[in-house]
Design a protein around this nucleic acid. Structure first.
Length: 715
RNA sequence: GGCGAGGUAGCUCAGUCGGUUAGAGCACAGGCUUCAUAAGCCUGGGGUCGAGGGUUCGAGUCCCUCUCUCGCUACCA
């Protein structure tokens, strides 16, 4: 068989969040495919990277008071750790915010310019004057112009489903600052992909590169009419790469993200003395010594058109190699529903690993993945069941019930008669390999389960444990166990891409490592058997439930209690003391009637934050030691806060419109003690005091009830 | 609305080119076994293949109509 050269990518995880079990569907799927190709003896390189650019990262970094670089470095480290925990084995893991990527963006851009694909047009967008940035549709909310539903995003309405431009929204507000956005125009750069229409038609419809549903989808949605120009630039401020021939404009994150695939390949090439063009240039691969390479992208269905229209267009226009195949998978649901933070089904990779073995999830996903775009459902009962019944009770059990009789001995010198079992399973190998090749892992697992059943039935019939009681039949026992262990090893070869650790353990048990697919064709003979050791623990539903419990972020954590709740809750006696300027708590028994205005002005944050996220914020009780006006500032008051002992913090607080320095001295406040220090015009501010209200006279400092002392943490 | 994918046992699903009596796992019932991590093996009950029509010697499979479910509907990460 000729050795293929295969470059594989998985989608670049965005540096704005942690890896969760939904992401893992893709990385596990891809890792299995890569390990399969390697086991088959193909050269296969698996590259990935963090996707680091765009408005969302910029905003988050700003909110956290640190640089984008610091944010993405932390997130990258977390991603790398999570992937390693699930045995996802990248040959290179890069970042789109690298000089390699910048260079490649420049190169492709030059090609696009040369081919006259770039045009410039003025775009009118909403601009947030307070945050000083243009607003993507999702950062604008307002009232739907069609049906009048409040609190709708800038591009379409949840309630009536109509789509519109954010400029049409009634009473639009920026979700970043609460400011009213204004319309501003800026020049954007576009790629004219309509020039490649006939190429895209041919490439997408050839049947070779895409699943048929995807080809149909593209045909129905995009290819039936002229393709619109693709807007690939964003005006400053934007976290990304500045466009060399268009100062003040940056490449849109989706321009440089797929180029990140190339950049990661480039880094790998540099480390391994490989030639980049062998992998990404079309014409370079005609040498007989280096057969043509294949590029395979694995992605989720949400980013289909980026990878099946824009990206092939960019590659074609710049003379690069096109993907051999884009493998697209569906989303994860848990218990038939979308993952939910409040239900605890939004499980982060790190939380999973705290409770469960990664092999379970790899096996479970494999048993459910087919070659189509169907969503994959994680049913917790089924998860436990498959792990215990199939993996432990089926596969591992074959070794467990045979190895103990021959541990310390060797396997038979010639492979005994087994009624054709080994040959049968060897013959199944090609069908299993075909299933792997087309990502139909459920067929792989089903076939392996049938092989397991055959092996277990064989052992049941031969009952070596009975013969083991008769010393004169020891050789027979050895023969039966040699068969059993070889059948076990054969199945493990087939499952090695899914269960790399188990394959490793099987190699240790039989003292011959599993190195290639052909290991399934030849039985081991005469080799020593190590004493059997547990390979994989059974899982208990309790452990799964604990993981779910751990992942729960109750709605209550982000929901203002309703008046009914507040009245039902045990009422703490309101305490009036010198630190609180007033007690807003109503007298027990009265029904407070709070209006909806505050919420309307600042809607609840839709995105949940985990307890981990919350505990990152170190809230402390602090006492105002001194307060003074700041010369030349019209909103700021300078505070010296004490956290007890001699720990002091200098804080500039924008509360001058509501408090005089005299009112502040001596009182207790709540401060964010670990907010990154920020250089302000008047000096360093080393924290932030917490207050409610919209500004102006409406600023209300938070204060603890009586008895709290400086330095205490707020939980 | 348009487009796409589906509807097969109580549940999750397989079913190739149209071809014998529609399959598997789980769950359920009964039996065997006691080597193995409360593991293993055998047997059984359970189906108008969403509905209707058509093509055919023959339809879960091909065609048409209807119905229900899910997903997508680009300058949005």
């Amino acid at each position: 068989m000729t050795q293929r050269r295969i470059l594989v990518t998985a989608a670049l995880p965005y540096a704005n969040g942690h890896i969760h079990i939904g992401h893992l569907v893709e990385y596990i799927q891809t890792d299995i495919w890569v390990r399969f190709q390697k086991l088959r003896g193909n050269r296969c390189v698996f590259v990935c990277a963090d996707d680091t650019h765009g408005t969302a990262i910029m905003i988050r970094a700003r909110q956290e008071g640190r640089s984008e670089e610091a944010l993405i470095a932390d997130m990258r480290a977390a991603h790398v750790r999570d992937f390693a925990g699930f045995d996802i084995d990248f040959d290179n893991y890069g970042s789109t915010n690298s000089e390699t990527n910048r260079d490649l963006c420049h190169r492709l851009w030059a090609e696009l310019r040369k081919g006259d694909y770039v045009t410039e047009k003025s775009v009118t967008q909403l601009f947030d004057p307070k945050a000083g940035t243009f607003l993507a549709d999702r950062f604008v909310k307002g009232t739907c112009p069609k049906c009048g539903a409040a609190d709708q995003y800038g591009d379409n309405c949840d309630k009536c489903g109509s789509t519109y431009s954010p400029a049409d929204l009634i009473n639009p507000t920026s979700t970043l600052s609460g400011a009213t956005p204004e319309l501003r125009s800026a020049n954007h750069l576009f790629i004219n992909i309509e020039k490649l229409h006939s190429f895209l038609e041919e490439w997408t419809q050839s049947g070779e590169h895409l699943q048929s549903e995807v080809a149909n989808y593209l045909k129905g949605h995009f290819l039936g009419e002229p393709l619109r120009d693709w807007d690939v630039s964003r005006p400053a401020p934007y976290f990304g790469f500045e466009i060399p021939d268009s100062p003040g404009n940056y490449w849109y994150v989706w321009f440089d993200a797929p180029i990140g695939y190339m950049a990661s390949t480039m880094e790998w090439c540099q480390k391994n003395g490989e030639n980049f063009d062998d992998w990404w240039r079309d014409e370079a691969s005609n040498l007989e010594s280096s057969p043509s390479s294949e590029i395979h992208h694995f992605i989720g269905k949400d980013i289909t058109y980026f990878h099946t229209l824009f990206w092939p267009a960019m590659l074609k226009a710049s003379g690069c190699k096109l993907p051999m195949k884009v493998h697209i998978h569906g989303f994860l649901t848990v218990g038939g529903e979308k993952m939910s933070k409040s239900k605890g089904t939004f499980v982060q990779a790190a939380s999973y690993l705290k409770h469960l073995d990664p092999a379970y999830l790899r096996y479970y996903y494999a048993s459910k993945l087919g070659s189509r775009l169907d969503d994959l459902d994680l049913s917790l009962d089924e998860f436990v069941d498959k792990t215990n019944k199939q993996l432990v009770g089926g596969v591992v059990n074959i070794a467990a019930r045979t190895a103990k009789f021959v541990g310390g001995q060797t396997l038979c010198e010639t492979y005994p008669a087994d009624g054709g079992l080994f040959l049968f399973a060897a013959a199944a190998g090609e069908a299993i390999a075909d299933a792997y090749e087309r990502c139909d892992y459920q067929t792989v697992i089903r076939t392996c389960n049938e092989l397991c059943d055959r092996a277990n039935t064989y052992l049941d019939e031969k009952a070596p444990w009975k013969l083991a009681k008769q010393p004169d039949r020891a050789e027979e026992v050895r023969q039966i166990c040699s068969v059993g262990l070889n059948l076990f090893r054969q199945i493990i070869v087939y499952l090695a891409p899914v269960l790399p650790r188990l394959a490793q353990q099987a190699g240790e048990l039989l003292n011959v490592p599993i190195t290639c697919w052909e290991d399934s064709n030849t039985p081991l003979v005469g080799t020593p058997v190590a004493p059997f050791q547990h390979m994989l623990k059974r899982v208990e539903l309790k452990q799964v439930e604990a993981m779910i419990e751990d992942s729960k972020i109750p709605d209550a954590a982000v929901t203002i209690p309703t008046t009914a709740n507040a009245a039902a809750a045990p009422v703490a006696t309101p305490v009036q003391c010198e630190t609180t300027s007033c007690a807003a708590t109503p007298a027990a028994g009265t029904q407070p009637t709070d209006g909806p205005e505050a919420l309307e002005k600042e809607p609840l944050v839709g995105e949940m934050c985990s307890i981990d996220d919350f505990t990152k914020v170190d809230l402390r009780v602090a006492r105002v030691l001194s307060a003074s006006h700041v010369e030349g500032a019209d909103k700021l008051v300078q505070l010296t806060l004490s956290l007890g002992g001699d720990v002091r913090r200098n804080v500039f607080a924008g509360i001058k419109s509501a408090y005089t320095p005299e009112q502040l001295v001596g009182r207790l406040v709540i401060m964010v003690a670990n907010l990154a220090p920020r250089k302000m015009r008047f000096g360093m501010s080393e924290g932030m005091v917490c207050a409610a209200g919209g500004g102006g006279k409406e600023i209300f400092l938070l204060a603890p009830d009586c008895g709290a002392v400086p330095g205490q943490r707020v939980h």
